[in-house]
């Protein structure tokens, strides 16, 4: 174009060759996700069908992996004996209590670190130092501190969920738009109002995604938590199946954990949609 302009300041007049015109090649496809809701059930079904087939034909030895039907039978045993509810009840109690306490404390500490310089200077190094410690390594200590009853189990889950929540929360507070805070100040809002109406809602997306992670960690830690003197619980059921080399029960137990994970993820997704409907 600059070339043409240099010559005369207006485009060169030439007839348009319409006969040889062709569509512009399309290059914009791919890289975009479509919703294919039926694919994942099909993938699951195919894998389980192949697995069952492999087990029945003997390609997969039953000591390598029990057939899905065997795992299902083990699961049905749990249902019929009523043990499922005992195990689930015990585990859910620990999960709910540990996760709730861990999350509440985590949000409180995260807010403190996010809001107060003193708390940040004092607690942040502590959190960074304690976060990477595998909680399982502390089990013998937890036994002494919290006993072998529910205390140490809830504590394991509590500690496991506390740290990621702290980090998610203070990260969320740090990421609240400073301009919104300045706006609040410019309208003379009180400190408490700014925290309640601007900072906490602004940090909520980060807190909720922290919950997503901490809930998964809580399920992972369930098995560890139920290592200590647990008579009932999905984790202890899995441990027992492992030590008795009862693979069908092992797979059934793991599947229950997996379903718990799916349900929690779904619930948090719903919570996100409810609380964060203001997001684009």
């Amino acid at each position: 174009m600059s070339h043409d302009l240099a010559h005369g300041g207006s485009p060169i007049q030439r007839p348009i060759d319409a006969a040889n015109a062709r569509p512009v090649p399309f290059r914009g496809g791919g890289f975009r996700h479509r919703k294919l809701g039926i694919v994942s059930p099909i993938v699951f079904a195919v894998i389980i069908a192949l697995w069952e087939l492999g087990s029945r034909s003997g390609i997969i030895s039953d000591i390598a992996l029990p057939a899905p039907s065997a795992a299902l039978a083990a699961f049905m045993d749990l249902v019929h004996t009523g043990m499922l509810w005992k195990h689930l009840g015990a585990s859910l109690y620990r999960l709910v209590l540990g996760w709730t306490l861990g999350s509440l404390l985590g949000v409180a500490f995260g807010l403190a670190i996010g809001l107060f310089s003193l708390a940040r200077a004092g607690l942040l190094p502590l959190v960074s130092a304690l976060f990477p410690i595998p909680k399982i390594a502390l089990l013998p200590l937890f036994i002494i501190w919290f006993g072998i009853g529910e205390g140490s189990k809830v504590a394991t889950i509590l500690f496991g969920t506390f740290f990621p929540t702290v980090i998610a929360t203070y990260g969320g507070v740090d990421n609240v738009d400073r301009n919104l805070i300045r706006m609040g100040q410019s309208f003379g809002l009180s400190w408490l109002s700014i925290v309640r109406k601007i900072i906490i809602p602004g940090a909520l997306p980060a807190i909720l995604s922290g919950f997503r992670i901490s809930a998964s960690i809580a399920i992972v830690l369930l098995v560890a938590a139920e290592m200590i003197g647990a008579e009932f619980g999905i984790g202890s059921y899995i441990l027992m199946a492992g030590s008795l080399f009862a693979l069908d029960q092992l797979i059934a137990g793991v599947a229950i954990l997996s379903v718990m994970g799916l349900i929690i993820s779904w619930a948090i997704g719903r919570a996100e949609r409810y609380f964060l409907n203001w997001r684009t």
């Binding site: 301009n179 919104l180 706006m183 410019s186 309208f187 109406k197 601007i198 809602p201 964060l276 997001r279």
Partner: peptide, 12 residues
């Protein structure tokens, strides 16, 4: 009272 360039509305 301020009026800000980026509006500073609470999105929620």
């Amino acid at each position: 009272t301020y009026i800000f360039q980026d509006f500073a509305l609470l999105p929620w």
